[in-house]
Design a binder for these strands. Structure first.
Ligand SMILES: Nc1ncnc2c1ncn2[C@H]1C[C@H](O)[C@@H](COP(=O)(O)OP(=O)(O)OP(=O)(O)O)O1
Ligand SMILES: [Mg+2]
Length: 479
DNA sequence: CTTCAAGCAAC
RNA sequence: UUUGUUGCUUGAAG
């Protein structure tokens, strides 16, 4: 497939799609003696459906395969994430990595590679708490991603159909739809669970025993263990990590699913309907008593077998009508999915921020920002079947925009620019902007311009939440 | 179907 | 500045 007709690293015009800026299998050998790449394994690995061709004890060779690392680098690069403790950025990484690749790969194969600690960054959670991120160096994000691409086809096919978080071809929408189907089957009570500080509290020995069930390559197991114990730099001081998997490591999400896979299997064994999204899972029952019993027994299972902590504040037994999950709620017993109250409040708050900030950028940019926010938001919540709600929010946003224009209107200079942009002939606009006529006239003009504005917004595709909603009809199929 | 850019959401 | 997985929306280039 690959031929070595073009050894140059320069991006020649014509074939930018073939350009590879990280690693060149055919010309990297300038500093080595032998040919580094084996012919058999380069094309063997692919992240998708086709199963790994062979044995579990040689998984590390699949990890370090050229094609796998290429794909891993594209993934890491795509995120454009901030650097880890070593300060190497995405832009400078290829030059840093190229001379070290052969050495690193050999260390990975020898089982002598030692990951660097991660960088601690504390960010705010929506609920007011703090989230402790662990940001690995780029090189470790690359290696972890390369591992993920091998572990995914090994583990993911065996995961439960009720597990939806962090998995390819699964989504929060799919989870919400499954909740909807389960409730409609008559399960109108739910034991809602959330785990406390989930990633931070992962027990290494429990996790590693689960990983070892399908990974027999000792080098790979050892490497994963070393990633868990790599430590964390907190303001320049190295702290050990004898607990937890870093929030920010590419490997962590699939590890968390491998850990909780036993929970899924246990719930399936008990014949309990459930839906899980990461550490947020709901077990369904037909009576409050049964849900209460499930809450207790599953809580015990999680504590005893997985040695994880159930978040008592976020976990409780609910009627399905008061159950909020993944930003949705599930009214009555119909086939509807609604936007949760919290999500509506967040939406309105965000719109207020965009439209309401007085100083800064002008109206045009704010509307552009608002437009793409509303579009993206609708892309997620458009699964909901609340035409009335979206119409209400639509009117509410228009009212806010009108208010913004009123404020702008008080400044004559902006008044003129606005009129011109809205399509009023230039001379007329200038004349009007200078006029000191009565308030009624101004109001009349504003009213007509608001009409123009609304028209413009629709033509630009900003609003009419209803139109956006209508276009997302396929999203709501089979809901 | 793939790649890139802007963004939204869940965790 | 804020990392990661996954899904999606719009636009551009194939
Ligand atoms: N922005 C993020 N970046 C990386 N990992 C995340 C992020 N958000 C969530 N996660 C992962 C790590 C979390 O442990 C896990 C579950 O999320 P979440 O329940 O919101 O927080 P938490 O379980 O760590 O704390 P809490 O005790 O408040 O529930 O999902
Ligand atoms: Mg949690």
């Amino acid at each position: 497939m690959k031929n070595k007709e073009e050894p140059s690293a320069h991006s020649r015009r014509g074939n930018p799609s073939v350009q590879v800026d990280l690693y060149f299998p055919d010309n990297v050998g300038t500093e080595t003696t032998g040919s580094p790449s084996r012919p058999g394994d380069t094309a063997a690995t692919r992240a998708g459906q086709p199963a790994l061709s062979n044995s579990l004890e040689s998984l590390m060779q699949h990890v370090v395969a050229d094609a796998n690392f290429e794909a891993a680098w594209k993934s890491v690069k795509r995120n454009r994430g901030a650097p880890g403790p070593d300060g190497i950025t995405i832009a400078e990484f290829p030059d840093w990595f190229r001379p070290r690749w052969l050495s690193i790969r050999q260390q990975l194969l020898d089982g002598t590679y030692r990951p660097d600690p991660v960088r601690r960054k504390t960010i705010d959670k929506p609920d007011g708490g703090k989230r402790l991120l662990g940001i690995p160096n780029i090189v470790d994000r690359l290696i972890q991603q390369a591992i993920v691409q091998i572990l995914t086809p090994v583990f993911d096919p065996h995961f439960s159909d009720s597990s939806h978080g962090f998995r390819p071809k699964r989504s929060a929408h799919g989870a919400a739809k499954q909740v909807r189907r389960t409730v409609r089957r008559g399960y109108r009570f739910v034991a809602d669970f959330d785990l406390s500080k989930f990633f931070d509290r992962v027990q290494h020995d429990v996790l590693m025993s689960r990983v070892a069930r399908r990974v027999r390559d000792k080098r790979l197991l050892q490497l994963i263990g070393r990633y868990l114990r790599a430590g964390v730099m907190v303001e320049g001081v190295l702290q050990p990590t004898d607990l937890g998997t870093p929030q920010g490591g590419p490997l962590s999400p699939i590890l968390s699913n491998i850990l909780l896979d036993d929970l899924d299997k246990e719930l399936e064994r008990r014949g309990l309907p459930f839906v899980r999204y990461a550490d947020d899972f709901a077990v369904f029952a037909k009576s409050p008593r049964a849900a209460e019993r499930i809450m207790n027994s599953v809580g015990r299972y999680v504590a005893k077998k997985l040695r994880l902590v159930v978040n008592e504040e976020k976990s409780r037994v609910l009627a399905c009508t008061e159950f909020e999950f993944l930003g949705f709620s599930f009214p009555k017993s119909r086939a509807n999915i609604n936007v949760s109250v919290k999500s509506i409040l967040r939406f309105k708050q965000r719109v207020r921020e965009i439209t309401g900030r007085s100083r800064g950028i002008s109206m045009d940019r704010r509307l552009g920002e608002l437009r793409r926010y509303v579009r993206g938001w609708m892309g997620y919540f458009g699964i909901a079947s609340q035409l009335k709600l979206f119409d209400k929010l639509d009117q509410w946003i228009r009212r806010r925009i009108r208010m913004c224009y009123w404020k702008q209107w008080k400044r004559p200079k902006r008044r003129r620019a606005m009129l011109i942009r809205l399509g009023v002939p230039r001379r007329q606009a200038i004349r009007h902007a200078r006029s000191r006529k009565g308030h009624w006239r101004m109001a009349k003009t504003i009213a007509s311009n608001v009409g123009l504005t609304n028209k413009w917004l629709q033509e630009e595709g900003l609003l009419s939440l209803k139109t956006l909603w209508a276009q997302l009809a396929p999203l709501r199929r089979t809901a």
